[in-house]
């Protein structure tokens, strides 16, 4: 599980082009949107693509994403129990 969390942090930093942020800067329970990492609606859509591409999880309702993408913790839990690859 902790590997998955590290992996997610690395991916988020790379794919969402977060400059000057390192894996160590993101705590597992930091909120990804709003005041936390400051991700926005396009990032949320990009995370939906990432779930599909890297973990074989298809989200049809973008509203579902809101809960899943709360933090690295919630994302990792969701992926661990739903991944198909």
């Amino acid at each position: 599980m902790s590997n998955l969390k590290e992996e997610l942090k690395t991916k988020i930093i790379e794919q969402l082009n977060l400059e000057d942020i390192t894996v160590g800067d993101i705590a597992d329970d930091d909120s990804l949107f709003g005041d936390g990492l400051g991700l926005d609606s396009i990032d949320a859509l990009e995370l939906i693509v990432m779930l599909d591409k890297d973990y074989g999880i298809k989200l049809s309702d973008p509203k579902e994403g809101r809960k899943i993408f709360e933090s690295i913790e919630t994302m990792a839990n969701y992926i661990a129990s739903h991944r198909t690859k």
Binding site: L16, I42, L45, E46, V49, D52, K53
Partner: peptide, 9 residues
């Protein structure tokens, strides 16, 4: 086939 919203925009 994985179109990216961050590119498309």
């Amino acid at each position: 086939y994985y179109p990216s919203p961050a590119i498309f925009v």
